[in-house]
């Protein structure tokens, strides 16, 4: 948790420093809050991570991918539940975030799906997750791993 706070503070500092810079969005404009993931059972099952991504800049940003040493195939997925109560999950190619807007990755909606884990996700540990945006901008967050039955970062 502490790591995240300092990360946000650092990002905020950068965004002040870069306030006078025009045009292209940069990592300083991207603030990631409340990141968390559930512990996994072994390495066979995919994991999921959640967070809120805020664009504090003046230019739109588009999230196009993820990378992490934890998983070979991390990807943004979206769970949809139909009016008949049937849930399905589909990959989301890109997520555009307008200036001043945020996108929530939360249970039952968008989530960072962590396929092909390289090691088990152990409660109490953290892992780095890099969000890759269009124009090569990247933002890395240290994601705390909560309990297997965690419902959110407040647990």
């Amino acid at each position: 948790m502490k790591k995240i706070v300092s990360m946000s503070a650092l990002l905020m500092l950068f965004s002040f420093a870069g306030a006078s810079m025009p045009a292209l969005a940069d990592a300083a404009d991207i603030v990631i809050d409340g990141a968390w993931a559930r512990a996994s059972i072994g390495m066979n099952r995919p994991g999921a991570a959640y967070m809120t991504i805020r664009n504090t800049g003046t230019e739109p940003v588009t999230l196009i991918g993820l990378s992490t040493p934890l998983a070979m195939m991390p990807a943004i997925h979206e769970t949809r539940t139909s009016t008949e109560g049937v849930s399905s999950m589909t990959p989301t190619d890109e997520i555009a975030i307008a200036p001043g807007e945020s996108v929530a990755l939360e249970p039952g909606g968008l989530h960072a799906m962590l396929m092909q884990l390289q090691e088990p996700m152990t409660e109490g540990e953290t892992f780095p997750l890099t969000l890759v945006f269009e124009d090569g901008v990247e933002a890395t967050v240290e994601v705390p791993i909560l309990g297997f039955a965690a419902r959110g970062p407040e647990d």
């Binding site: 559930r38 999921a48 539940t81 249970p107 989530h111 297997f148 039955a149 419902r151």
Partner: peptide
């Protein structure tokens, strides 16, 4: 059990 999102969320809700 290979469901990363909906199933752990629902089982946590049930718990």
């Amino acid at each position: 059990t290979y469901c990363p999102d909906v199933c752990p969320t629902t089982l946590s809700d049930i718990s």
